[in-house]
């Protein structure tokens, strides 16, 4: 009974945050509610035993989404005007939202409570995957092509972001060049936190082979602390034409693809023989972490732009 009370309270607060984020005129308030919403979603994931997802959500929600949206808000200012909408648009939105929400709700409550799922199949093959965490086994072995394609999607998104650079901005540093008072609060914070963040990020990647964690979660933590050092004006983001940067970005998907092709000798594309599965997965995870972290940093910073004179 208490457990249900807890779950229902979490869900009510989640829905209130979402409601506050989509209503009202104040955009800043909506963003702050969305940040709190991300926190509550992590708690919800823990309640349905999805610790790996909770880690990813916590790292992305707390570390990156807030920075991305608040940065966009700061740069847009009052430029973000409302498009002219036909009369009754609110009513149509209300009917569509309520209708689709109700339809999905109806579908959810009608699901059979004993859904089999794939847990048994995954656990039966876990031995062969080379790792002890079933989620990592699915991500990097059983459904490795998902993760391979995802790392490529991240690169494509980055190319998309870079391609909206202004004509004079190309070849410059991505995002704004930040500065802060020397020895001030922001700079001290930017020096202090990354040391801890590096340890925690590396720990989460390493822990991923046996428990909750992995390349995405660890990479996000590393990306977040890297963004902090840039926001604090301690490090300038590298120019987008830098050669090492390009190599580092394609290294993750590249190594993954290479190992996948080697699998052809063992039978098929993306097949890891059991004997080498563990070292192969750990090697892919480490390289992938570096590429993911770098790609996420550049995605959040935005397109390159000319430094103000």
């Amino acid at each position: 009974m208490i457990a249900s009370g807890f779950d229902i309270t979490v869900c009510v607060l989640l829905c209130l945050c979402a409601l506050a984020a989509v209503t009202g005129r104040d955009t800043f308030r909506a963003i702050v509610f969305f940040i709190v919403y991300g926190l509550l979603i992590s708690v919800a994931w823990l309640r349905i035993d999805a610790i790996d997802v909770a880690l990813a959500e916590a790292a992305i929600g707390a570390g990156l989404t807030g920075v991305l949206l608040l940065g966009a808000f700061g740069q847009m200012g009052s430029a973000d005007t409302m498009a002219r909408e036909p009369r009754g648009a609110v009513l149509i939105a209300l009917v569509a939202g309520a209708g689709i929400g109700a339809a999905v709700l109806f579908a959810v409550q009608g699901l059979p409570p004993e859904g089999a799922g794939l847990t048994a199949e995954v656990l039966a093959q876990l031995e062969a995957s080379g790792v002890g965490n079933p989620v990592t086994a699915v991500l990097l072995n059983f459904r490795g092509y998902d993760t391979l394609l995802e790392s490529i999607v991240l690169l494509v998104a980055l190319i998309g972001v870079w391609s909206v650079a202004s004509e004079t901005g190309w070849g410059e540093r991505p995002g704004i060049v930040h500065h802060a008072r020397a020895g001030g609060t922001l700079q001290s914070f930017g020096r202090f936190l990354p040391a801890i963040g590096l340890v925690i990020g590396a720990y989460i990647v390493w822990a991923g082979s046996s428990g909750p964690g992995g390349a995405f979660q660890g990479g996000t933590v590393l990306a977040a602390v890297a963004i902090l050092t840039i926001l604090a004006g301690l490090v300038d983001a590298p120019r987008v034409t830098t050669r090492w940067l390009r190599w580092a970005l394609v290294m993750g998907p590249g190594v993954f693809l290479g190992v996948a092709l080697l699998g052809l000798f063992g039978g098929a594309f993306l097949v890891f023989p059991q004997a080498v599965a563990y070292p192969a997965i750990v090697a892919i995870e480490i390289v992938l972490t570096a590429s993911i972290a770098l790609t996420l940093v550049l995605l959040v910073l935005g397109p390159p732009r000319e430094a103000p004179q």
Partner: peptide, 28 residues
């Protein structure tokens, strides 16, 4: 628990769609 969070997900989909379609700014 799964039913509580599943239904919550459905409500969030509805709320999000409303926020997406109502007259508002791009960032919202």
């Amino acid at each position: 628990s799964w039913l509580v969070y599943g239904c919550c997900g459905a409500v969030l989909v509805g709320l999000g769609l409303f926020g997406f379609m109502r007259p508002t700014t791009t960032l919202r």
